[in-house]
Design a protein around this nucleic acid. Structure first.
Length: 731
RNA sequence: GGGCGCUUAGCUCAGUUGGUUAGAGCGUUGCAUUCACAUUGCAAAGGUCACUGGUUCGAGUCCAGUAGCGCCCACCA
């Protein structure tokens, strides 16, 4: 063995593993049932960061352990086109290059992003290899693969046929910067101080006025009613007409329970196209209101011509100008008002509610043929422990989120994604077609309307919310190779970050059960966000980012893996620092040197070793430790499993067992002819004990530190012939 | 406005059905070491387990409350 462990040999070890074919469970001779993990596909829009290294480590620990422990272990890797996220990244890239995203033709943009994504994907694959990920590359999937799309289309069709997907015009979250709608999960709230204006709406009969509090005077031109609470002081005016202070149009005064009598003045202006509450109130009172709602804000966040004097202004400027124009209609001075404003989770642009025709998934309604809602399918599976969360507190989070679900807008007006498989027939030349409002859901391309035969059809332009397709990942990935679904589904563990519990995990559970009748995975293990030693989030601007590949280059991949797994329980944010990694690099060196000592002058024993009582106790302790490590891995308590292995190797095996053996191995008795025979046998037994324990320790440490253990294994004299790889040694 | 979580050694954290004297890593201090490893060993110092009360033979662990911190969710204009 070399005097030093050389981590630059890691690539060669990985290549040997990969070449062996044993990443593919089909090539493993195992009697046990499969053990399956579907890798959360990393977004192919950048390079891997420390969070990826964390999931690789945790999942690889399980896969390597079960592979050694008699199971057909499948870890199916993938890459995510990550629709909106990637488009945002690419948009930024173009901005840096001084090009305009919006001036590039859509087809060309798609091709450019595709090229960008595929290049990233390829790079990421090499990084996963560097981290030691023992996944089955022969089964790798990309979220835009044809067979994945087909599964996604067929799920959409099934949902549509079951009445769980519909198209509707209603207020949706619009990001003016990214020019797309977003789901309720893709917006966040920011605290903002705005002015609360008190505006008088005079009654047309001259009997005074109603006072309305609003933060949005710029939308007054789009007001079509005043709503008051039935028990408020304004109730006496219900049925009267109020005058719009800008347009002077007569608007009905109506009553609705949704109005809070204790907030503001207890009266609400109804602007259906710019506020979702207003839209709902309007929907309930269409008949009384009569006026048609209008929009005064365009898709770019500017006032449109129907806003009259405000036309062309940005919303913020329009607000100030409106306040100026309305000065005489104010009943009192505007107040500072502190409230939560919804913004785009990516760029922080204020979300403008706009009314648009979009596709929605019903979350809480039953299918039209009967059965359970998507929500109920998932809730029941979790409640009955068919899906178990680690740590269990996420079960509470999950249930609470499921409790108040609203329908999910899955339409996105972006280029980078899977087109919604819908055509619209403008001909509508027969009743069947008209009854479907010209909507045609089709898994394949169409030339003409299948209902009326008209060739006057056009394809839907919108693409899916990426989570709609990635929510189908566990079964979609297994459906493409024949036999896989049957063999590997449901999968065993879904290991991912808790930040995407709602975005992804919840959707996978719903769609998984909906499509296959079975849960997609039995256990969800959620890890946290990797933080620096001061518990700070890592970010480029703070300069505290640890690039896993760079530190692996310096300290070895094994050290990086160990520092990610030790010291953090499930669901908590792991803390990592270069000092910590250096500490585990020292451990790597310790392992290497201990092995070097054990293997030094080792020869096959000439007789059956006669172990002393102490030897037997040492061997027993090793067995016990190994069982303990296995137990903790199986409990998904990787933190302790790693710590036990670490502690045993260093402070029992190296510090005690090896140290105490030195006397016997180097005994002066060996030089004394009268004692020599006994001493030789004893030295041999000591050496034999050391090599047995070392050998078992390598197995025990392999799932955590695959490279150094495999590379020592290659020097072991007693390694079994077959394959000569620790990776597939029986645990 | 609702909910969840955290508070244990100087620092970062474990402590999974309540059970001897509360642990690890790093850091600190002292000593040792040409002998696999200074990327080392041995040893030491360091904790009223946030606070208050309760259940119990027994509480870091269970219950209630208080304080501080963090996070998630939410269409009161």
């Amino acid at each position: 063995m070399d005097i030093r462990y050389d981590q630059s040999g890691e690539d060669a070890i990985y290549a040997k593993w990969e070449k062996s074919g044993y990443f593919n469970p089909d090539n493993l001779e195992r009697k046990g049932k499969p053990f399956t993990i579907i890798m959360p596909p990393p977004n192919a829009n950048g390079s891997l960061h420390i969070g990826h290294a964390l999931f690789v480590t945790l999942q690889d620990i399980m896969i390597r352990y079960y592979r050694m422990n008699g199971r057909k272990a499948l870890w199916l890797p993938g890459a995510d086109h990550a629709g909106f996220e990637t488009q945002v990244v690419y948009n930024k890239k173009l901005e840096k290059e001084g090009r305009s995203f919006w001036e590039i033709p859509k087809d060309k943009l798609y091709e450019e992003i595709k090229e960008f994504t595929l290049a990233n994907k390829q790079y990421m694959e090499s990084q996963l290899r560097k981290l030691g990920a023992s996944c089955d590359w022969s089964r790798e999937k990309f979220t835009l693969d044809d067979d994945i799309r087909e599964v996604v289309y067929s799920t959409f069709k099934k949902l549509y046929d079951d009445g769980l997907i519909y198209r509707a015009e209603r207020p949706v979250n619009w990001c003016a910067k990214h020019q797309t709608t977003l789901s309720d999960l893709e917006i966040k709230y920011e605290e903002k101080v705005d002015k609360l204006y008190y505006v008088k709406y005079s009654l047309s009969n001259g009997n005074g006025f109603i006072e309305v509090a609003t933060t949005r005077p710029e939308t007054i031109a789009a007001d079509i009613a005043i709503a008051v609470h039935p028990k408020s002081k304004w109730a006496e005016f219900v049925g009267a007409k109020a005058l719009n202070p800008l347009t002077k149009k007569e608007m009905p005064v109506i009553t609705d329970d949704a109005v809070d009598p204790d907030f503001g003045t207890g009266a609400l202006k109804i602007t259906p196209y710019h506020d979702s509450t207003d839209f709902e109130i309007w929907s309930r009172h269409k008949k009384e209101i009569e006026l048609e709602p209008i929009s005064v804000i365009d898709r770019y966040g500017k006032m449109d011509p129907s806003a009259g004097a405000l036309s062309g202004l940005k919303v913020k400027d329009a607000r100030e100008k409106a306040a100026e124009i309305l000065k005489d209609s104010f009943s009192r001075e505007p107040e500072d008002y502190n409230h939560q404003v919804s913004v785009c989770y990516k760029c922080g642009t204020v979300i403008e509610p706009r009314v648009m025709k979009q596709w929605f998934v019903k979350m809480t309604d039953k299918p039209n043929k009967g059965g359970s809602s998507l929500r109920d399918l998932a809730v029941r599976a979790v409640r009955s422990k068919k899906v178990r969360f680690v740590s269990s507190r996420f079960e509470k989070e999950f249930m609470r989120w499921m409790a108040d679900l609203r329908d999910w807008n899955i339409s996105r007006q972006i280029v980078w994604g899977i087109k919604i498989p819908v055509w619209y027939c403008d001909g509508q030349d027969n009743d069947v077609c008209r009854s479907k409002e010209g909507i045609i859901v089709s898994e394949s391309k169409l030339q003409k309307c299948p209902y009326c035969g008209s060739e006057n059809i056009r394809a839907e332009n919108d693409v899916f919310d990426t989570w709609f397709s990635s929510g189908q990942w566990p079964f979609a990935t297994l459906m493409s190779k024949s036999g896989d679904f049957k063999k590997f589904y449901p999968t065993d563990v879904m290991e991912t970050g808790w930040d995407i519990l709602f975005f992804w995990v919840a959707r996978m559970i719903m769609f998984g059960i909906y499509r296959t009748g079975k849960v997609p995975f039995k256990t969800v293990y959620l890890h946290g966000l990797v933080r620096d030693k001061d518990r700070q989030k890592m970010s480029k601007s703070k300069g505290n980012v640890v690039n896993p590949l760079e530190v692996a280059e310096v300290y070895g991949t094994d050290a990086v893996r160990m520092s990610l797994v030790i010291g953090s329980a499930a669901g908590n944010d792991p803390v990592i620092s270069e000092d910590k990694i250096r500490g585990y690099r020292n451990f790597t060196t310790k392992i290497w040197n201990a092995a070097r000592f054990v293997l030094m002058d080792y020869a096959e024993p000439s007789r059956k070793p006669s172990f002393t009582a102490r030897d037997k106790a040492d061997l027993k302790e090793m067995e016990k430790t190994k069982k303990d490590v296995a137990k903790h891995i199986e409990k998904l308590d990787f933190n302790h499993a790693a710590e036990i292995a670490y502690h045993y190797f260093w402070h029992s095996f190296a510090d005690k067992v090896i140290e105490e053996s030195k006397e016997r191995i180097k005994s002066d008795d060996l030089k004394d002819p009268s004692r020599r025979k006994f001493a030789e046998a004893d030295a041999e037994a000591a050496k034999e004990k050391l090599i047995i324990i070392l050998s078992e320790c390598l197995k025990m440490l392999h799932p955590f530190m695959p490279f150094v253990t495999e590379s020592i294994w290659q020097n072991m004299p007693n390694k079994t012939k077959k394959g000569n790889m620790l990776m597939i040694e029986p645990w």
